[in-house]
Nucleic acid binder design. Structure first.
Length: 200
DNA sequence: CCCTGATTCGC
DNA sequence: GCGAATCAGG
């Protein structure tokens, strides 16, 4: 795992937002162990821990079976070909706004915009993902995440979390030559110098 | 069972 | 430093 400054910043941000370690791990495509381990190493404020580990000798050391990690975010939208998306490969956390993982459209263009607003950390209660509890996060492709009828170009801005039931793409008509609609293109194509973080 | 975070310790 | 394995509580 390559802990770049950016990833660490995201970790801190999500940690500060109160997301669970597993949730953070899911968003960063890493395990919760990695999140917890790194968080502790960074000296991040501890969460209300459910346990109090007393003097317990560990019999066997931790082996490393080394599972094949596949951080594959397969988003094959037919809309993005001529232009490489400078933004999120999987989740809308890369484009600017560090404190707003889930973009909320201010002006719904469709009459029934199924926007999920902000995905709260309690989203797990709303659904029971039976898929692979222990394995790596499964990223849904656009084909099964969005039962799109029309084949025309559509905004591929992700709404919600990949792998969760409500996940889908925006689907609005994108700007000419852009993978995103007007609305999301504004957040996707952000000047880096406009990025302002509240992190230390 | 599921979830959570903490710690240990081989690498 | 990293994180899987493990622990331990809800």
């Amino acid at each position: 795992m390559e802990w770049t400054e950016e990833i660490i910043a995201q970790l801190k941000d999500l940690w500060a937002e109160g997301l669970s370690t597993a949730e953070i791990g899911r968003r960063l495509s890493i395990t919760k162990n990695a999140v917890v381990g790194k968080a502790h190493r960074l000296g991040l404020p501890p969460r209300p821990s459910p346990i109090r580990r007393e003097g317990k000798a560990k019999p066997t050391g931790a082996e490393k079976p080394e599972k094949t990690a596949q951080p594959v975010a397969e988003v094959t939208a037919d809309a993005q070909r001529s232009e490489p998306a400078p933004a999120a490969p999987r989740a809308p956390l890369a484009p600017s706004v560090s404190e707003q993982p889930a973009p909320a459209p201010s002006s719904p263009q469709a009459t029934d915009t199924p926007v999920q607003e902000k995905v709260a950390p309690k989203e797990k209660a709303a659904a029971s993902p039976k898929a692979a509890p222990k394995s790596k996060p499964v990223f849904r492709t656009i084909s099964d995440a969005e039962p799109q009828k029309r084949r025309g170009p559509s905004c591929c801005w992700p709404i919600g979390d990949p792998g969760t039931p409500g996940f889908h793409f925006c689907g609005a008509t994108p700007l000419p030559g852009k993978p995103y609609c007007d609305e999301h293109a504004q957040i996707a194509y952000v000047r880096l110098r406009d990025r302002r973080d509240t992190m230390a």
